[in-house]
Design a protein around this nucleic acid. Structure first.
Length: 887
RNA sequence: GGGCGCGUAGCCCAGUUGGUUAGAGCACCUCCCUUACAAGGAGGGGGUCGUAGGUUCGAGUCCUACCGCGCCCACCA
């Protein structure tokens, strides 16, 4: 054994321990037909990522599961990797170039991509290093990147297969356009944010001079793209206008007044300007009524040549200018405040524009069907369950997925065009293939160009549970067969649609099986005011700083203890003191035990059975029984994803049972064999149970205590021992704890310093209880620092200088000499009697209710009447003590 | 417009299928540097569980409505 130092130096230990685990290959899993696999794929962090508290929580949960399942003997694999994060990464590198005064266009596609790869080589493993600092037991040998060669092959294969099935198509539709990133986005990538804006009421003059129609809009600048005004066909106010024409101000374009059911007569004026190229609803009307589609925007958000005098202006600048011009011409009826939700780019937060453009889409309805079934029939379970409804709601209303992006960093579409055919017909000369065709299959031209777009990052992420194993290459089959489907997916709520839902669809489509059986959705990490942590708000707590200051174990156990199933976590820096203090407690307890251990008496295996269990004193049997009870409860909690509950059980056991009571009692018999054995075994066992939560500290102590036992990481979880969990014995110890508590309370009531010895007399008329106390009186004597404890045959204070209380049928009389404040004592007893009486009254009420006796289960009735009996006895004894006191 | 979560001690939160007098941690008060730990030990005060009804022998827990706070989804310009 090597001596445990006074202070735990986590700074040094953590990296050293982690390296040794990694070197010994503990994180690596392989196909093991004899063992049950347990597999988690990490939600791949962005390659640009740096560890934030969301990761810390997410990865701690996964690490707990992984370490626990490894300990219970399963072939456990945690598959790590990173995501190329198309737009995010491209933005990072573009910003870097920007500082050098360069745009990506200055470099050209190829040179720019070289720069991104270079950046990836230099910075892409930052997040991996940080995961290691957290302690994550990932199988790093398998680390994947979504743009690895093999992975890219999977992406391409999926595109081609879906295209062959008719599930991928190209078309001209309104998509979400980010004018800053200058790319299309999926609906999920353009989340709506509530914003307070205005509703502008604009008069559109009728061609025949008979007046005007007023329309309401939140985006007045789009009027330059208007090709109609629509009213509801049943709207009496407007019937007479249908078919007339309007002169669009500024452009003097003649546009028709059309009738469409879509228009809500209640909203605004009941007349809607129709901009088919810049609004999804208007697009629909445009198609229904065969209206022209006029694009008025450049890709960067400036107005284009179709915007007349406003061409070249930024969209928001144009809005202001137009409103001013309308006002001058008397065409602006009014402006009303109006709150509405506006789409924003999830990468740069720019207001997105609905934009008509030709993009590639995945037809989602056919994929969604099986994914709905898999959840409905219970093959995939969400924890907590409520997310199932969110998932199903999205799945059942699924829209087609826009997958093409006008950026450079990503998987380029395996689509090739023949420019010659294209120039004749935009839909002709398109080839989807693994390789660039030699010549155009239509006209035979050898001039072939690849599509410039890349795929949505999530179009690669959704393949993660099987592409990481090498799918679709045949050599991946044996691993896929063993490790797929994976076991649990751990992620945050924000990512259910982006990723979880799509992985389920992809798994069912390409593997013909679910990708995982359980989805654990944890809460969002927020600051203490409830705001999401973000760099721009400046409210982040950096997990690495916490690791530096408190240790990774403290970070982990604090985070886990704070988060009950699926509930958001409100963090502040001081909350990590909880874990730091706990780590310190464990360290010191272990140090104390080691200082007192006689190595010669200890078994080689700290978890060997207790052959002499029945002969052990109460305290030993009690803590052993408690340990194995807690082991079972922790196991049960972990199996049900109740991580905070498991952590709480261990905290309470270790601190408030093992340290507060057993360790104190052990001091009485510290050199005896049974105590040595018990200290050693319960401490070692506790380290095992704590290991998934606090891997570093527990490993460090374990190797110092059990140098021959190997690493804690590969040691089996303590197996349940038959016959050591004993409720009766726990009750006996419970009586001692209660009695000590009361005696200590009496001490404190007399204001005695801990070093003052007291004399205590106990009156207890119940033989069983008396025997328990008599047999274990040395414990009580020690725990309350009594010089003498005796038993009285009558229920009254032995002398006037005594303070008294009654608990669990025992009257306690404590004397440390000196005077007592008689009035105060009586008041105390009276207060207690009053409390008891109130409790008795309530019990009586319950027991006297015939319907209670009739309907409640017999064991409850029995419990209640036994409870009442105890209360009554306690009150009687207190009365007697009180009477004796006043004599 | 739908859907979800939360409201329990001064603060931050647990509370598993309804069942003794509702619990931690932090903070607070008293005592203690007792040879594991002051990042600690012993003791203590503090809550009509958001409000109002209902179901039930019994409600923090189930139902309904309402009041606050937060989140998600949705093509009302």
């Amino acid at each position: 054994m090597s001596e445990i130092p006074t202070k735990y130096d986590f700074q040094d230990n953590e990296s050293r321990i982690y390296d040794s685990w990694e070197k010994k290959g503990f994180f690596h899993a392989k196909v093991n037909p004899g063992g049950k696999p347990f597999v988690i794929v990490i939600p791949p962090p962005n390659v640009t990522g740096i560890l934030h508290m969301g990761h810390a929580l997410n990865d701690t949960i996964q690490d707990i599961l992984v370490r626990y399942h490894k300990m219970i003997g399963e072939e456990t694999l945690w598959m790590p990797g990173t995501d190329h994060a198309g737009i995010a990464t491209q933005n990072v590198v573009e910003r870097k170039l920007g500082r050098e005064g360069l745009r990506r266009q200055d470099l050209g596609r190829e040179k720019f991509l070289e720069q991104v790869w270079l950046w990836k080589e230099q910075h892409g493993s930052t997040i991996i290093r940080q995961l290691k600092r957290l302690g994550c037991a990932c199988d790093w040998e398998r680390t994947r990147f979504t743009m690895d060669e093999g992975y890219s092959e999977a992406v391409q294969e999926v595109f081609i297969r879906l295209h062959q099935k008719g599930l991928i198509y190209r078309g001209n539709y309104i998509i979400n356009w980010c004018p800053r990133c200058q790319t299309a986005l999926s609906d999920e990538e353009a989340p709506h944010q509530d914003s307070s804006g205005f509703l502008y009421y604009i008069r559109y003059p009728l061609e025949d001079g008979s007046g005007s129609l007023t329309v309401a809009t939140t985006r007045p600048e789009t009027m330059l793209g208007d090709t109609a005004v629509a009213v509801n066909p049943r709207d009496e106010r407007y019937k007479k206008f249908i078919g007339k024409r309007i002169i669009l101000p500024f452009l003097d374009r003649l546009i028709p007044v059309i009738a469409d059911d879509f228009v809500d007569p209640e909203f605004g004026t009941g007349a809607v300007k129709v901009t088919p190229a810049h609004d999804p609803n208007d697009y629909g009307m445009g198609r229904r009524h065969d209206l022209p589609f006029i694009n008025i925007l450049h890709p960067d958000g400036r107005m284009n040549e179709n915007a007349g005098d406003y061409a070249g202006m930024d969209r928001f600048e144009a809005r202001e200018a137009l409103v001013e011009a309308l006002r001058e011409r008397g065409l602006l009826e009014k402006i009303v405040s109006h709150d509405h939700a506006v789409g924003h780019c999830y990468r740069c937060n720019t207001v997105i524009e609905p934009y008509l453009s030709k993009q590639w889409f995945v037809r989602m309805k056919p994929l969604a069907g099986p994914a709905v079934t898999a959840v409905k029939d219970g093959r995939i379970k969400f924890h907590p369950e409520r997310w199932e409804k969110v998932y199903l709601n999205w799945m059942e209303n699924i829209q087609d997925w826009c997958i093409s992006r006008q950026i450079w960093w990503g998987h380029r579409l395996p689509v090739y065009y023949c420019p010659r055919c294209q120039s004749k017909d935009g839909e002709a000369g398109v080839t989807v293939a693994r390789q660039k065709p030699e010549k155009c299959p239509v006209c035979g031209s050898a001039e072939i160009v690849q599509d410039n777009d890349v795929l949505d990052t999530w179009f690669s992420s959704w393949l993660w549970p099987f592409a990481t194993f090498g799918w679709p290459r045949p050599e991946a089959d044996s691993e896929l067969k063993y490790f797929y489907p994976t076991s649990v997916l751990v992620t945050a709520q924000e990512i259910i649609f982006f990723w979880v839902a799509r992985m389920i669809m992809a798994g069912l489509e390409f593997m013909n099986d679910i990708p995982f059986s359980d989805v654990y959705i944890h809460g969002t990490v927020r600051d203490k005011t409830g705001k999401k942590m973000s760099k721009s708000l400046g409210n982040v707590i950096d997990p690495l700083e916490i690791i530096d200051d408190f240790g990774a174990d403290a970070l982990r156990i604090s985070l886990i203890s704070l988060t009950s199933m699926g509930q958001d976590v409100y963090l502040s820096r001081d909350k990590f003191e909880y874990g730091r203090n706990f780590a310190n407690k464990i360290w010191n307890a272990a140090r104390f035990i080691q200082m007192n251990l006689d190595v010669d008496h200890l078994p080689a295996d700290p978890l060997a059975g207790f052959s002499d269990f029945a002969e052990m004193p109460l305290a030993e049997r009690w803590i052993i029984s408690r340990f194995y009870s807690v082991e079972a409860e922790v196991r049960r909690s972990l199996e049900r994803f109740r991580f905070n509950e498991a952590a709480g059980l261990l905290y309470d056991f270790f601190w408030h049972q093992f340290c507060d009571w057993y360790l104190e009692l052990a001091k009485l018999s510290i050199s005896e064999n049974h105590t040595q054995q018990t200290l050693y075994r319960i401490l070692s066992g506790s380290l095992l149970l704590l290991h998934p939560f606090m891997p570093f500290l527990t490993e460090e102590l374990w190797t110092r205590l059990c140098p021959s036992a190997g690493s804690l990481m590969t040691h089996p979880w303590p197996a349940a021992l038959p016959g050591v969990i004993d409720r009766e014995l726990e009750g006996e110890m419970g009586l001692i704890i209660t009695v000590c508590g009361t005696m200590r309370n009496l001490r404190s009531r007399k204001g005695l310093s801990p070093r003052v010895k007291v004399k205590v007399r106990i009156f207890v008329d119940e033989a069983g209880k008396r025997r328990i106390l008599e047999n274990n009186i040395e414990y009580v004597k020690y725990l309350v620092n009594a010089e003498e404890i005796s038993f009285s045959e009558e229920n009254q204070p032995p002398s006037p200088s005594v303070v008294s209380d009654v608990i669990s049928g025992c009257s306690i009389f404590l004397d440390a000499g000196g005077e007592i404040n008689k009035a105060e004592e009586e008041a105390k007893i009276n207060k207690r009697i009053a409390e008891l009486e109130e409790a008795i009254r309530r019990k009586e009420q319950l027991l006297n209710n015939p319907r209670f006796r009739e309907k409640a289960p017999p064991e409850v009735v029995e419990k209640e009447s036994a409870g009442k009996k105890e209360l009554v006895e306690e009150r009687e004894k207190l009365e007697q003590v009180k009477n004796a006191l006043s004599r």
